[in-house]
Write a protein that binds this DNA or RNA. Structure first.
Length: 584
RNA sequence: GCGCCCUUAGCUCAGUUGGAUAGAGCAUCGGCCUUCUAAGCCGAGGGUCACUGGUUCGAGUCCAGUAGGGCGCGCCA
């Protein structure tokens, strides 16, 4: 489906033919021969660097080599012109008919247009969100959620076997603090006066309902009991409640993970011991004393021997501790067990989506995965930068006291899930993102969500109008695919056809680079081309999508609109955004 | 102090994984509404791609260094 890939294959075959008949020396490496759209469409439809990358090994100047390639490339099907340009680029121009056939094929493929077999069914694990189960999701989590889910959809569209996963950090000091906080709210629910929430506990009012629910379930049995008696039970109850809250936040933006893995479960099953035993067997664990960190030194730093992982052998800057001073596992230790768990479930490709504040953790985790899998598995970490929540250009003060909203749910309630998801994907993951509540709901060109949705709604609108204009005509996709597309010849129309034909390549490139934002920019470009052509119809009635009294011409033009609608819908589907039928 | 990330038009950002004359939106200026939706479109101006070297046919892109910004640096996750 990716025409650039198709032509790359054809061109390499042609080059091999030249080797066979002696026009090129044997033993050339064709892997660097690329076929891409030229930056400037005026140069042609396809450009290849073949002559330039082969010049040196073939012992010929690039332009001489290019000249020898021209007749061979001219002979390829659908090629109507071949030019040599600049240092030795070869530009190919394809027949108009080729682009018409691509549109017909796209309409024929329908919803699967752009899907790829690039991944060849390989298993990929995408772990994202993994917010601590101690409260509702905030806006920053929302970015990781939208990003991770779009990346998963993208990899799925590119032919990978994707598992969406959430790691539940339900062990450690944070959830102990959660349990204590809930116990307080529980006492409050049973009529006690609890006063101010102590430092170190979670003060959020969302825990009041959890306390009430606990009182309803267990009555007064945890009153006046030592912490040891109630902590495990209340912790489990509280974590369940928080995960229910988070799942509901996720459902609010249309996200559902297939697998939830519990940190506590890993610890209780002995997975951490097993993982560390594995590393120990490979001589990667030892007892040693670390240098104190430079810069901001901890007040209570005392050198002491601890259990360390030889992360430096795998590119990390220092070896990393696995046990805290109280003997319990560090977060890193349980995370090692978790990634071994993923590996043992058959994932050689793991992608973790983290917040940028975890950047310092990447090297050691990659080191651990390399060590655990003996180099057979790879971990890629995508760090999502911060989201600056704005309103009309002013930063939103994140003050709970002032009642300004900070939770993801509040933002979704304010602007809608589709807007949140799309805007979160309009920047590369490693760039800061301004999320302006006023701007994202504005109906203007300034708002990319609106602009792209408008293109889809316009295509629907014109199809409705056409059906009213020609009540007896068949404008089904089957009919549009068979339209007389040779009527589409205007340069702007041809430009849209070429853009539509690039869609499969866009999907593959975005999937390979793990960069969903490329889809957003492509959709914006496609929408712009469509809006521009639409407006030209004001002056040139022959460019309108509905041509009065001419069903055949209308059908051809509707096919173009349908192609745009189809691809916009496909792109929005990857983002988990519902295409709009009308803008009202 | 060390590590990771970032630096492209006045502002917010893309840049097809090393290609040709570096692009878009906003803002500024100038045009287009008896219309299939003007919630839109067309055009103009605006650049030392932070800086200095290097790698090669070719560098915004890769490497090294410098400057500025962000994040992180045992007993949080």
């Amino acid at each position: 489906m990716n025409l650039f890939r198709d032509f790359q294959t054809k061109i390499v075959a042609a080059l091999e033919g030249m080797v066979a008949n002696g026009a090129l020396p044997a033993g050339l490496d064709f892997s660097r021969v690329a076929v891409e759209p030229p930056r400037d469409p005026a140069h042609g439809d396809l450009a290849t660097n073949a002559a330039m990358v082969l010049a040196k090994p073939a012992g010929q100047p690039p332009r001489t080599l290019a000249a020898a390639l021209v007749p061979v490339l001219t002979a390829l099907p659908d090629v109507v012109a071949v030019d040599i340009a600049g240092p030795g680029f070869i530009n190919l121009r394809l027949a108009e008919n080729f682009w018409h056939r691509r549109l017909a094929a796209a309409i024929g493929a329908g919803d699967v247009y752009g899907r790829s077999s690039l991944g060849n069914g390989r298993k990929v694990n995408v772990e994202y969100v993994s917010a601590n189960p101690t409260g509702p999701m905030h806006v920053g989590h929302g970015r990781g959620a939208a990003f991770g889910d779009a990346l998963a959809n993208l990899l799925d569209a590119a032919g990978f076997d994707v598992t969406r996963e959430y790691y539940v950090n339900d062990a450690g000091a944070q959830v102990d603090a959660l349990a204590r906080s809930v116990h307080l709210r529980y006492r409050e629910a049973l009529g006690e006066t609890i006063g101010a929430i102590p430092e170190g506990l979670y003060p959020g009012e969302y825990l009041c309902a959890v306390g009430v629910a606990l009182a309803a379930r267990d009555g007064r049995k945890w009153l006046n009991q030592p912490e040891d008696a109630w902590l495990p039970s209340i912790l489990a109850f509280a974590v369940d409640a928080m995960m229910a809250l988070i799942r509901s936040d996720l459902a609010g933006i249309g996200i559902e993970h297939a697998v939830f893995t519990s940190e506590r479960g890993l610890v209780e099953r002995g997975s951490v011991d097993a993982a560390l035993l594995l590393l120990e067997g490979r001589g990667l664990i030892y007892t040693g004393t670390l240098e104190p960190p430079k810069g901001d030194k901890p007040d209570d730093w005392e050198p002491r021997p601890q259990t360390l992982f030889r992360a430096t052998q795998f590119g990390d800057d220092t070896d990393r501790p696995l046990k805290k001073s109280d003997g319990s596992w560090t977060y890193f230790a349980t995370d090692i067990a978790y990634h071994l768990d993923k590996f043992s479930r058959g994932f050689a490709v793991m992608i973790d989506v983290w917040g940028a504040d975890h950047g310092g953790y990447v090297k050691r985790m990659k080191a651990a995965v390399a060590a655990l899998s003996d180099g057979k598995a790879g971990l890629e970490v995508k760090l999502c930068q911060m989201v600056n929540l704005m309103n009309k250009g002013e930063p939103v003060k994140m003050s709970k006291r002032a009642g300004t909203f900070v939770t993801l749910r509040d933002v979704v309630d304010e602007v809608g899930k589709d807007v949140v998801r799309f805007i979160m994907l309009t920047r590369k993951n490693d760039q800061h993102l301004d999320f302006d509540l006023a701007k994202v709901t504005e109906q203007s060109k300034d708002n990319p969500v609106f602009y792209v949705q408008y293109a889809h709604a316009r295509h629907r609108s014109v199809l409705r109008q056409a059906a009213a204009e020609f009540p007896n005509a068949d404008f089904s996709d089957a009919a549009l695919g068979g339209a007389e597309l040779s009527r589409l010849r205007d340069p702007d129309e041809m430009a849209i056809l070429r853009t539509l034909a690039q869609w499969p390549r866009v999907v593959e490139t975005a999937a390979e680079t793990h960069e969903p934002h490329r889809i957003a920019f492509y959709l914006h470009d496609l929408a712009a081309a469509f809006h521009a052509l639409w407006t030209r119809g004001k002056d040139e009635t022959s460019l309108r999508f509905i041509i009065a009294g001419d069903v055949a011409a209308t059908r051809a033009r509707l096919a173009l609109a349908r192609g745009v609608g189809l691809v916009v819908a496909a792109g929005l589907r990857i983002f988990g955004v519902k295409p709009l039928e009308e803008m009202r």
